[in-house]
Amino acid sequence: MSAHASTVDPKKAELWDIHHHSHDVISTRTLGYFLYLLSDGMLFATLFAAYGVLSYQHSYFGGPTPAEFVKPWYTFGQTIALFLSVLAYGFGMNALKHKSKSGLINGMLAAFVLGVIFLVLDIHDMSHLYSMGITLASSGGMSAFMVLTQVHATHIFFGLIWILVMIAQVMTKGFTEETVGRLLTLRMFWHLQAVIWVFVYIFVYLWGYIS
């Protein structure tokens, strides 16, 4: 097993990295951010598991169930807003390839506005439920419903702050290694939140509606 024969001639071996090789900063950062997003995905996976366990009839304890109040068409509006936001971000990143600062900022602004629309629709929906007396204290099932959807909304909220920060950084600093790296990682973040929203929409809203 340990018969690992030496294949390099020690007399000719290259011992030092003389031809100075440096690590690619942007790819190192995006890899790290990708790893963080994996853990974010695990976070949502766990929340989905909790939602699955707490979505039986008895989990609602005789109180309201999603079937009684979810409005798939209303939430579909949120879906479209978030997807268009991701699309706008994509157009902005396309402008980055052409080194167009204004194109990027326009795309980011559009992504920001659409994200705000998503969040406003969500807050309106939640305050409507609150006015009906449906809160996360209603039952175990409602706790799972509220926490899953609102943890996602919190991610969107912090993403929006980040978009603003990046618009400011691109305006003041232009396209540096740091800002471009952050634009890429923000794009990954924004995209993942849209992907997770697909699962939220299907498992919480559509499934909740038909069950």
Partner: peptide, 18 residues
């Protein structure tokens, strides 16, 4: 934390918790 701070019912003995 949701249970203890916000009154959620994830792990309570009643109210549909598990």
């Amino acid at each position: 934390a949701a249970d203890r701070y916000l009154g959620a019912h994830f792990f309570t003995a009643g109210m549909g918790g598990n």
